[in-house]
Structures are given as structure tokens and as C-alpha cells.
């Protein structure tokens, strides 16, 4: 007997034997799965199955009904990477995201700061700034379509009243993407604004008090208190906006149909046209898979690098 080994403690609980442990763990796992089942089922039906099906279809040639006819392997992908219009739509999509995401977040942040303080009647402004959230893409697009109409639209009337030459907003390949971007920024401001305002409201007021006692200017307060504490929200809205921008569809369908000369033919619109106008479901599926991989990679990178700068309380 070794004296370093203490004598067994008289235990009140019987030590469970190995099989019992496994059985309890199994039971707990099963119970957990039952709780998860509804959401797993929902995800399965509406996400996992379509994803698997898309991957499957991407390797087939299909008929007009979308039924697979002939196995082609990776041929669609190979054709895709050689397709000039594919790369053009990738470029257009990223340029569009670069135009809309930072601008939306910056404007929404400024608006949130403006109405953050409690003043009389501030609720009216908060409602106004958030109001675009309640508008569907379809309605907003129609409004912008009329505003951009070169013949009767308000935009050109304003320009001509100010003495500028008329611009054919959506009809000129050089301006169309910017015009759609402006409309998109306007549409997305409401949602982004609301989240950022909620984030600002959650910051402990005592921190601002301490900052004031320490004699920090408004801008220093903004930079040392508001921004770091708001960073989780900022990170969230940027990530979500970016994903949304890469998946833009509605505005394009209503305003430009991908034209003129493919200037606004963003990724998702190109996929839609391939599948539902040209009935090339296999090729469209391959494009959708590529889009999925791109978005997944970007979101991963965002979490990997940008999230380090996020300050969680």
C-alpha cells in the first residue's frame, strides 16, 4: 500500500458504472434532439434540402421543368469560370456592396446620434428615420422608378431647376448602378438606424457622466465611449448588410432588369434570369453554389478578423 494514495473517501453517492453513464448521456442527448427537432425539421425542409438539391442540380443538365436529364459533373463550374459575363456580375456585385454598405452604416449612425439624446418631440424624428423599414422593396422600387423617370421624374426636375443638365439615371450604363445604389441605401437606412439607436440606448449613461467629469469633449466621448460599446452592433449591422447587398435582387428586377448593357446585372439577378427566364436550372444552380461559397468565405473572414476589434461587455 502506498501512503500517498489516500484511502477512498466514504462517499454518499454510489459511483456510477460506465454503462450507466453512457445510458444517461444517451438519454440526455435524445431529449435534447427532441427539443431541437422542430427547428431542425424547419431548417432541413427550407435550407438543407434545397442546398443539397442545388448542389445536385449543379452537376446536371436539366429540362425546362428543372428535372435533371444528363450528368455533366463539374462542367457547369468550368464553363462558369470561363464566362466573361459571370466575372462581370461578380465585379458588379462587389462594387455595389462597396457603394451601399459603408454609406448606409455611416448615414444610419449619424442619424442615430442625432436622435439619441432625449428632447421634446424626438420620437417623431425617430419614427421618420426608421420608417423606410416598413416599406417593401417592391413599393420602394416603384417610388424610385418614378423619381428616376427621365421625362417626368422629380430628380431631373430638381436638376433642371438648379440649372444642371438632365441625367438619364437608370438608362445610362455609367449611372445606373449608382442610381440603384442610392435607392438601396435609402431602403436600408431604416433598419440599420433602428439597430444602431437601440445599441446607443443600451450604453450605460454613467459612462458618459464619468467622461464628462474627466473633461472629455463630445468627439472624444464619441470615440472612446460610444464607438467601442457600439462595436458589437456595428459589427452585426455591417455583416448583415453585406450579406444583404451580395444578395440584392428586388430593386434590380424592378428598376433595371440587369441592364443597360448588363451594368446592373448583379449575381442573384443573373442566377434568376438563368433559371427562370432561360430555364438553365443546372447552370443557375452552379452559380448559386459559387455565390454560397463566396458569402460563406466572406462572413468567415469577417468573424475571423473584424470581430477582434469588437468590444463585448
Amino acid at each position: 500500500m502506498n501512503d500517498r494514495v489516500s484511502s477512498p473517501m466514504p462517499s454518499a453517492w454510489p459511483v456510477p458504472t460506465q454503462p450507466t453513464v453512457r445510458r444517461t448521456a444517451m438519454k440526455a442527448w435524445m431529449e435534447g434532439m427532441v427539443y431541437l427537432l422542430p427547428s431542425l425539421l424547419l431548417f432541413g425542409v427550407f435550407l438543407f434540402y434545397p442546398l443539397a438539391r442545388t448542389l445536385y442540380l449543379s452537376m446536371f443538365s436539366t429540362n425546362y421543368q428543372g428535372a435533371p436529364i444528363r450528368f455533366v459533373g463539374w462542367a457547369h463550374f468550368a464553363a462558369l469560370f470561363q464566362d466573361e459575363s459571370f466575372w462581370h456580375s461578380v465585379k458588379t456585385t462587389f462594387f455595389f456592396a462597396a457603394l451601399t454598405v459603408p454609406t448606409t452604416v455611416a448615414i444610419a449612425f449619424c442619424l442615430a446620434l442625432l436622435v439619441h439624446e432625449k428632447r421634446k418631440g424626438i420620437g417623431i424624428f425617430r419614427t421618420l428615420f426608421a420608417s423606410t423599414m416598413g416599406m417593401s422593396v417592391a413599393v420602394a422600387s416603384i417610388i424610385w422608378m418614378f423619381m428616376y423617370n427621365p421625362a417626368i421624374g422629380i430628380m431631373n426636375r430638381l436638376l433642371s431647376a438648379l440649372g444642371f443638365p438632365a441625367v438619364s439615371w437608370l438608362l445610362d450604363p455609367d449611372t445606373a448602378l449608382y442610381a440603384v445604389a442610392i435607392a438601396t441605401i435609402w431602403m436600408n437606412i431604416g433598419f440599420t438606424f433602428l439597430l444602431l439607436l437601440a445599441g446607443l440606448q443600451n450604453i450605460d449613461p454613467s459612462l458618459y457622466e464619468s467622461a464628462r467629469i474627466a473633461g472629455l469633449s463630445y468627439w472624444r466621448q464619441l470615440w472612446t465611449v460610444s464607438v467601442p460599446l457600439l462595436s458589437p452592433t456595428l459589427f452585426f449591422v455591417t455583416t448583415v448588410s453585406l450579406i444583404q447587398a451580395l444578395q440584392t435582387f428586388g430593386q434590380i428586377d424592378f428598376l433595371t432588369k440587369g441592364g443597360p448593357v448588363d451594368a446592373t446585372n448583379v449575381f442573384v439577378y443573373a442566377i434568376y434570369r438563368e433559371a427562370f427566364v432561360n430555364y438553365q436550372f443546372g447552370f443557375a444552380s452552379a452559380q448559386a453554389i459559387v455565390l454560397f461559397v463566396i458569402i460563406a468565405a466572406i462572413t468567415f473572414l469577417q468573424f475571423r478578423f473584424a470581430e477582434r476589434k469588437v468590444h463585448y461587455q
Binding site: 421625362a151 417626368i152 437608370l170 441592364g259
Partner: peptide, 16 residues
Amino acid sequence: YNAGQNWDDMRAAFQA
């Protein structure tokens, strides 16, 4: 006049 792809835009331009 470049009327784009939208029928309603074109008709609106004519009526205006």
C-alpha cells in the same frame, strides 16, 4: 429618346 425597357415609363413620357 431612349425609353429604357419599361412600357409604363415610355407611355408616361408620351402622355407628358
